[in-house]
Design a protein around this nucleic acid. Structure first.
Lengths: 338, 338
DNA sequence: CTGAAAGCGCTTACAG
DNA sequence: CTGAAAGCGCTTACAG
């Protein structure tokens, strides 16, 4: 226990008060030194810092936030953690946060449910965060109102196909769908299939689908057959729906998927069934996930910039005026499956 | 704008004070009603709740926490978000939290770096969380000390092969490695290869490796060849290291991977190179990720329970005494690749 | 360059 | 069943 002798006292919680007492200065001086605010004599600073270290003092941010009426918390609401796309956005947010004066993310999940989102945001706002970053434009009226009435910055991430409450950072999913259609038509594909997941709560996948159809219409084409799962997107759903589509009566020579997870499932199904890609059928995804890129035949897809969206969301919330929309773009990845 | 007439006043932030004033009661009464504490006359409650709704009052949790000296925050530190395993743990934590009186997770990333973890935990403790959930047993001395001195509950997740600071929830990675070795030896494999990632900061992968070797030793065997990436685990690293191992001089008939990501990379390499699995070489992973399960040949692996670990961590922190270790177990998944 | 005082928005004994 | 008062641990004008 001798090793513990120079450690902070076991129990007694140490506050600015104790530090001030021990250092023979006022609480305000301790506070100023700790926040590097205002002019401080060098020896005062040294004396105080020594006491701070000796006592193992950790400022209480709850008290600090209450007193200064601002917190360094950023509320983040994402729809799900099971789709790797959102953890990637979180990584970007985390990277953006590292450049700040140690802001902290408070993360919640909305499960693609606007009612749940409303509750979650209510709980978040109670912590008086500096900003709330949420996903997409679909919110309940009450959510929208809470956000408008509060004076926190709001960033709606992923999508820029509508007008933001405050700031939007993302890409145009409609354009991505359109670009997919144009690209595939130009490559000579004519008989289009579509394999999707439950789009009821996935506005962005719906927008991509609409964009795709517009491009096909312009070329005098349409989607000849489709198979849509009742569940969220997953590799398993992609396998199943691909099997269903290919077992149908309408022949297709290219399948556009609602995203890469579904498309990887499509590739797995074709491998199992001895269907050659892209000879028998071509496959095109969306997102540009690493798993698709690493497959023996790299998945043809559109790369979205999830990390960039998260990082930019933080930067924008710190610097941009209300009404800003930032397009993080996308790019077609040729790959080997279409 | 008539629709906005009944909405809360635009600016003036509303506090208990305003609610109390408008409802003709004291602040303490408002506080009691909002927290369902103590006896309250029915009509008082109704009257106050009406005002609360009318004014759109949202309690300030920062003030609440400071006054009551306890927060509903739970600090969570995970090493990374790029390995899907940790988002899965977060999902479990989220599920566990839903059963509580709306506690909120504050999530930070340590990037497998004990120094960074120390800073992150320091920042977290400043928020006086109810508990800190972190990953594994590897911490700096300072981290360990902070955690011990603070009176927050501490859960170390994923691993149970050491003694916890407070509570540990996870599985024995040594046993999992051992079980892998036994299983594969029993199935008749004799020439073992190992493909891994950078294990310097990954104690659990090291423990699995040690367990595997023990099992092999007991059977009079050893690892004949290995290829270890300098980077973190990924499908790409798995492809590359598998190629390297199979190009070496030492023939192997089964490869044990440090985890499923690496193993999936191994499968992809074999597909590209026309190597048949498990005929030419068998493949065995660790984790039981969905992607491995969905492949045309389901990946042989060990299933860990990441979701359960997260969920149990929350439950344990609420109910279990210090010193508790909870084994969430694992199971061998036969699959088709070994 | 430093200190005394008020206050941030709640909660919690304590009294009645 | 309800209220007045003190206090949680900081920060921020204001004075000097």
């Amino acid at each position: 226990m001798t090793a513990k002798q120079r450690l902070p006292d076991r129990k007694s919680k140490v506050t600015v008060r104790e530090v001030a007492l021990r250092a023979n200065v006022s609480e305000s001086t301790v506070s100023r030194i700790l926040r590097n605010k205002g002019p401080i004599a060098d020896d005062t600073r040294e004396k105080v810092m020594e006491v701070v270290r000796a006592m193992g003092y950790v400022p209480n941010r709850i008290a600090g936030s209450l007193a200064s009426l601002n917190s360094n918390l950023v509320g983040v609401i994402i729809p799900s953690l099971s789709n790797i796309v959102f953890p990637e956005v979180l990584q970007g947010i985390h990277a953006g946060l590292e450049a700040t004066d140690n802001m902290q993310a408070v993360i919640s999940i909305s499960n693609y449910d606007v009612e749940l989102e409303e509750n979650v945001i209510r709980g978040l706002l109670a912590w008086k965060p500096a900003a709330v970053l949420t996903t997409g434009f679909e919110h309940s009226d009450a959510t929208r109102r809470m956000l408008e009435l509060s004076d926190v910055r709001v960033v709606e991430m992923m999508d820029i196909d509508s007008d933001p409450i405050d700031i939007a950072v993302g890409m145009s999913h409609r354009s991505a769908g359109y670009a997919t259609g144009r690209h595939l038509v130009e490559k000579g594909w004519r008989r289009f299939g579509y394999v999707g997941h439950n789009l009821d709560n996935d506005r962005r996948a719906r927008l991509r689908f609409e964009g795709l159809r517009s491009a096909l219409f312009e070329a005098g084409l349409d989607i000849a057959a489709r198979a849509v799962a009742g569940s969220a997107s997953s590799v398993g759903a992609g396998k199943q729906m691909t099997a269903q589509l290919l077992d149908g009566d309408t022949p297709v020579d290219v399948i556009v998927y609602s995203n890469d997870d579904m498309a990887v499932g499509g590739v797995f199904h074709c491998q199992s069934a001895g269907i050659s890609i892209p000879g028998d059928v071509a496959v095109f995804g969306f997102n540009g996930l690493d798993i698709g890129f690493q497959m023996p035949q790299p998945l043809s897809t559109i790369r979205s910039n999830r990390f960039l969206i998260g990082k930019t969301a933080i930067e924008a919330m710190l610097t941009e005026p209300a009404g800003t929309k930032i397009d993080t773009g996308f790019e077609i990845f040729e790959g080997g499956t279409a």
